[in-house]
């Protein structure tokens, strides 16, 4: 599936950021993924080691934070946490809602080791 493509894109960004910060190693990568991003977290975890081999992030710890799906109702104003395939207002049931969170596919943060001395 496309999780390997996503991992490859992730690693390109991580390597570029690591270069810009003169990091010798990436220690930790934090991602945020919502169910509506279309990315499956277990598949992402499986794909990561394949994509990371031979990169500066080869031994990095990959942390994936799963974000909830939240909507705000445009009719009654309520905010509710809902299922990914049922984005209706939790209070009044209207379908005219706006997504507040749940479609994220973000590289949130990195921890970098800056010199070989830090090893």
């Amino acid at each position: 599936m496309h999780e390997l493509s996503v991992c490859n894109a992730l690693l390109e960004q991580v390597e570029s950021i690591a270069r810009d910060h003169h990091a010798v190693r990436v220690d930790r990568i934090v991602l945020q993924v919502g169910p509506l991003s279309g990315v499956e977290i277990p598949l992402l975890r499986h794909a990561y080691p394949l994509a990371a081999t031979g990169t500066v992030a080869e031994n990095a710890e990959l942390i994936v934070e799963a974000l909830p799906v939240k909507v705000r109702c445009s009719q009654c104003g309520a905010e509710s946490e809902v299922e990914a395939n049922r984005l209706l207002c939790g209070r009044c049931g209207d379908f005219r809602t706006n997504l507040l969170s749940g479609d994220e596919m973000l590289l949130a943060s990195l921890e970098l080791i800056e010199s070989a001395a830090g090893d």
Partner: peptide
């Protein structure tokens, strides 16, 4: 993640995984 106790550089990115 603002700082790590062992002095590692913590970088906030908040960018789409597919930004390229």
């Amino acid at each position: 993640l603002a700082r790590t106790p062992d002095g590692k550089k913590a970088v906030t990115v908040l960018r789409s995984l597919l930004s390229e």
